[in-house]
């Protein structure tokens, strides 16, 4: 099967982008809950513009942040991205500059944050942040481990999202292949009986074509 055809079939059966967004949001909501934090967010790194983009936010009041962009050179998130190293900070007092990435966009200045790179293979896909854990709780290495586990999960989700986007991009301008994608998608949505019939039909088509 050609790469275009594979991409077409894959794009047809891949979940819609909204499903990945749901997964990312679920990850940040669980992260916020587990750490008893005030907020949590995921930045996706956009290679084309060298920016970080808000891809998920746990707080329902801050969904408007989605899609907002900050330069990858700014603040803690930028350092975590470039150094590929996690960082946990408490007790920020009144220094706004540290959190310019978040604070400028939201008007919300956290007192503390955890930031961890989202690493998949050798690539860094973005940054997961958890803001304002309870101020009286002392951070532990066990929490760092937990944070790393969430980051791994989020990185897998981001990688899937990127794959889906690439598959769809491969279809742009290729009408014939897009038709294959639609067939694959339609087949994927069918009830069990109809799906079996559809597959049987495709097998017959395959026999005729080959």
């Amino acid at each position: 099967m050609s790469d275009d055809l594979k991409a077409a079939v894959a794009a047809g059966v891949l979940p819609a982008e909204e499903r990945f967004a749901e997964l990312l949001r679920s990850i940040v909501e669980v992260a916020r809950s587990i750490f008893h934090a005030r907020a949590s967010s995921i930045f996706l790194y956009d290679e084309d513009t060298d920016e970080l983009v808000f891809a998920a936010v746990a707080n329902p009041d801050e969904q408007s942040l989605l899609g907002m962009r900050i330069p990858s050179s700014k603040g803690i998130a930028g350092w975590v991205l470039s150094s590929r190293t996690p960082l946990v900070i408490d007790d920020l007092k009144n220094d706004l500059r540290f959190a310019v990435d978040v604070a400028e966009q939201t008007g919300y200045v956290p007192q503390g944050l955890m930031a961890v790179p989202l690493l998949h293979d050798e690539r860094v896909l973005g940054v997961l942040q958890v803001l304002d854990r309870p101020s009286n709780s002392r951070f532990s290495l066990a929490e760092m481990e937990l944070l790393g586990m969430f980051a791994t999960q989020a990185a897998v989700a981001l990688d899937l999202l990127a794959s889906a986007r690439r598959a769809r991009a491969a279809l742009d301008g290729k009408g014939d292949m897009a038709a294959v994608a639609r067939v694959a998608a339609a087949l994927d949505r069918l009830e069990e009986d109809k799906r079996a019939a559809g597959l049987a039909l495709l097998r017959e088509l395959e026999r005729v074509l080959s």
């Binding site: 190293t85 960082l87 946990v88 900070i89 920020l92 007092k93 220094d95 500059r97 540290f98």
Partner: peptide, 14 residues
Amino acid sequence: AWLGGETITATGNS
């Protein structure tokens, strides 16, 4: 030590 002459509490192998 942190920016602006401040100090903060931080965690990491860093």
